[in-house]
Simulated scan of single mutants.
Amino acid sequence: MRRTVALLTVLLAAGCSAPPPPGTDGDLTDGWATPSTPAPFRPAAGRCHETLATTAPLDEYRPVDCAELHVSETFHVGTPADADVAPAAGTPGAKAAYRECSDAATGFLGAGWREARVAVQVVWPTRAGWAGGARWFRCDVTTADLDGQSRTSRTGSLAGELSHPSPLRLACFDPKVDGGTVTAMTAVPCNTAHRAEFAGLWNAPDISYSKLESDTERSAAACRGTIARFAALPDDSDLQYRSGWISYNPTRSEWLSGERRVRCFIYFAERTFSRSLRNAGPGTLPIR
């Protein structure tokens, strides 16, 4: 028994004094990289999506290639100020994000997006994502009708779409009017018969949305001035006898985000034109 114990002691001592394997220093307590802190998920620009949303749960993030059929496209990802929760609609933080997205959209599309049948949407992390450290907002663009409601699917990126002639640019339309309400505005080529044409924008004051909707006199005066500049007409009390007008306000959610543009269209109940009325002048549009 003593010989066995002595032999084991010798073997253990020999093992401890053996040189370390090649490529090692024999020290198991150093040389290990410190594990990095997991970074919260952050979406990427240049990806397209099958829907348009206001929040983006991580488990529903399934972007598609923009060559495939899609509804919206992420063109910019911003970083908001740190806060306990994501900014609520109508707050300064939410409005700042919308301004950043709006400015970035002009560069992405190649021209002012407010003069085209497109809409800009800010997409936020969910409450759970924000609590987990997500600090981003997504800027998505989609094609939309003049009411800003209908979202249509498309293929291909919208990058640079407005830097050249595009069917998305606001131009001439064939409106359907029921009483005093426009029920449809169908885009048509300006060299075909039409009764309405986009004349330009005016910026509404910072009033309540209900006041904007109800104050038709304000909209009439502002759109008539826009039409006068567009068609090279005198901006006077006789303008109402030369043409009518149609206006489209921002959606309620756009207004809450800080959007103040109103789109104005020159309109005729009975007359049709097969040309643009830009700089048409009083000879083409006489008092009637």
Rank of each mutant, 00 (worst) to 15 (best):
F265W: 05
L58C: 00
A199K: 10
P234C: 05
S163K: 09
P92C: 07
E60C: 04
P165A: 13
L8W: 04
W245N: 08
P189F: 15
G225L: 14
A159T: 11
F198M: 13
P63C: 00
S243F: 04
L8A: 11
D147P: 00
V122N: 03
E50V: 11
H49Q: 04
D236G: 15
P22W: 06
S214A: 15
A104E: 11
P234E: 08
L285M: 13
A134H: 00
G90N: 10
F268C: 07
T216D: 12
T91M: 05
A184R: 15
F137D: 00
W136K: 00
A134M: 01
G281H: 05
S102E: 03
G26R: 05
R138D: 13
H76P: 01
W136R: 01
E254A: 12
P250T: 02
A81Y: 02
T4Q: 09
R260C: 08
P22M: 04
G26E: 06
L170V: 07
G133W: 00
V64R: 06
A39M: 06
A144I: 01
A204M: 07
D140R: 00
W202Q: 09
S208T: 13
P282Y: 09
T9K: 01
A159K: 14
R62G: 09
S247N: 13
P205Y: 13
V10Y: 03
A196E: 08
T106Y: 02
E60W: 07
A280N: 03
H194E: 05
C172T: 08
V188K: 07
S237N: 09
V120L: 03
